[in-house]
Design a protein around this nucleic acid. Sequence first.
DNA 1: TAGTCAAAAGTCAAAGATGGTCAGAGGGTG
DNA 2: CACCCTCTGACCATCTTTGACTTTTGACTA
Lengths: 158, 158
Amino acid sequence: MRNISDVIEQYLKQVLKESQANAIEIKRQDIAQRFECVPSQINYVINTRFTVEKGYLVESKRGGGGYIRIRRVILHEKQDVLSSLMDVIHEHPRLNEQLVENVLIRLVEEQMMHEQEAQLIYHLLSDEALNLQVDDRSYIRRQQLLALMKVLRYRNGG
Amino acid sequence: MRNISDVIEQYLKQVLKESQANAIEIKRQDIAQRFECVPSQINYVINTRFTVEKGYLVESKRGGGGYIRIRRVILHEKQDVLSSLMDVIHEHPRLNEQLVENVLIRLVEEQMMHEQEAQLIYHLLSDEALNLQVDDRSYIRRQQLLALMKVLRYRNGG
DNA sequence: TAGTCAAAAGTCAAAGATGGTCAGAGGGTG
DNA sequence: CACCCTCTGACCATCTTTGACTTTTGACTA
């Protein structure tokens, strides 16, 4: 294998495969030392090889006792629904309650989330909760709906 | 376990669980000695792990015969859990990710919402989604958490 | 009773321990 | 050469650990 990133990637996937749980916890510094590279190389490997699209979820904690946790997740099969909804969200300059409702209803219809969850989120994104200028409301809604889509991508085994 | 704070946290929770009453009384110096750390480490553990929103109440007394008493708050009415959390949300000037997480975990523990719902909301309220100034983030989180409480109130028969 | 002292616990800021980011250098390939 | 990955290191953010200094409390003493 030519580059160190590929080697580290293989190593991490191997460890992941061998672990009972579908998750591993590593110390960045340890891995860097093992492969004699700078610590930020590990971030590079994670950012390029362990992305959500590829079915991995990464969490970490800094400070004493810090760690990086890599989890294997199952991607939702309806990625196309999500990307089409993301397009809608991007294209609309103004995101009003009606649009939020439509998006949420669609997600429920596609069985990507439960009625109750949609209900909750609808309230969080209501005009009442987002007591702001129209533009700011749109901004928050856009950000949060996109964040929602991101979570729904895997929404399984996580 | 990764760091001494986590170890002490687990220990205290264990002792709390094993005690008949839902409260324990410790001597700071004793705990520090047992875990070979400085006494103020105990304060750190208490301040970060036994907070009000997590459902703990801490009282103490200095001087001879001093102690630290940790009490697990047990609220029988869901209504009480909600209003206690609303108080926390109102009182905190800054609502960071950690506090949001604590509140959501508490709501799940108290069986007022499902794990997955908490997961979704956590992501909507993350720093990443709320890409704003600190104060604006706090404002949105406060508004939305309060909106959440409101929904949970009638959803759980308040 | 008031003052003093020692024995707790509290506070806070600095140091330590991790991980994250980003821009630029390095290197391989069409 | 141009472009796209990789690699590196300086600088940043966050969580933990430590210790000096402060406050509170109760017992003892004058």
